[in-house]
């Protein structure tokens, strides 16, 4: 079976310039024969001297299927040549039989530019020994550079699978705080939990006190964990003049099995009918609200 890195290299071969791919293959051969840190760092940065950062890599159908079978949840949208080539190099590093390869990855991260950080964090779900990478990912989320935050938090199956509940909740709350489109967080429904539901409700109170809005998608985190307090707050959301708010309330109300949200089902029959028909989902609401990326 071909490794993910070979598959990526193969996909790159289809689209990138042959000179660039030849260079990358040469670097991979050289580094796997004799690995040294600095030449590895230079190759990683040197990707920007050989590839086209604006060129998106399209994965052949077969390749995409194999990759997604190997790594469930992996998103193959928006892979540019820089990111793809750098993922190949990170993959090479972490499959080498080298005891301090993780230290090398940390050092690489500690002097990386924005696009390099995006490649490193985007590669996380492809890498072996994920348990060793959790701290790197959590530390990465402390950034305020949105594109770097997004590389970990959005369209990335790594946090869902490997974060503790504490780490997961911090990710979702920061994504909300930064106004990121929650429907692109992989595993949002599967990792729902009562502590997060309460924290989101608390954030809503804080926003309302400040005269600000809470994004409708936030309420998705309360699915399955609607307390009396949350039910009470959702009535306010259901009465909002903003359609997105009302739709969020309807989405929760239709799925509610506790009876707490029955009044909302009565108050929002049209929205609830859309949910029942499947024309209104959390993903469709999120997509409507989000800036296209």
């Amino acid at each position: 079976m071909e490794s993910p890195y070979e598959l990526l290299l193969g996909a790159l071969e289809q689209t990138a310039s042959s000179d660039a791919v030849r260079w990358l293959r040469g670097e991979c051969t050289r580094l796997s024969r004799h690995f040294e840190e600095n030449p590895f760092f230079f190759a990683f940065s040197g990707v920007s001297r050989h590839f086209d950062r604006n060129a998106e890599v399209t994965f052949p159908k077969g390749t995409a299927e194999v990759l997604q079978r190997q790594i469930p949840g992996l998103c193959l949208k928006h892979w540019d040549e820089f990111r793809t080539a750098r993922t190949v190099l990170i993959g090479l590093l972490l499959t080498l039989d080298r005891p301090d390869r993780l230290r090398t990855l940390e050092r690489l991260t500690s002097s990386a530019d924005i696009r390099e950080l995006i490649a490193i964090f985007g590669a996380l779900p492809l890498l072996p020994n994920p348990e060793d990478l959790v701290e790197l990912a959590r530390d990465g989320l402390r950034t305020n550079i949105l594109s770097v935050f997004d590389a970990i938090a959005l369209r990335n199956p790594f946090p869902e699978r490997h974060f503790t509940e504490e780490g997961w909740n911090q990710l979702v709350l920061k994504a909300l705080f930064l106004g990121r489109p929650l429907h692109r967080v992989v595993g949002l429904d599967a990792r729902a939990n009562p502590a997060l539901a309460e924290a989101v409700d608390y954030l809503a109170h804080e926003r309302w006190s400040a005269g600000r809005k809470i994004p409708p998608e936030a309420w998705r985190c309360c699915t399955g964990y609607v307390t009396d307090q949350i039910a009470h707050d959702l009535e306010r959301v259901a009465a909002s003049p903003d359609r997105g708010d009302r739709e969020a309330a309807a989405l929760l109300a239709v799925g509610d099995t506790t009876g707490r949200l029955a009044p909302i089902r009565e108050a929002l029959p049209a929205e609830c009918a859309d949910v029942a028909m499947g024309s209104l989902t959390w993903d469709s609401l999120g997509a409507l609200l989000a800036t296209p990326v």
Partner: peptide
């Protein structure tokens, strides 16, 4: 010793 790490970065 740090400079070579940075001079070949993008931008």
């Amino acid at each position: 010793e740090l400079l070579p790490l940075y001079v070949c970065k993008e931008g």
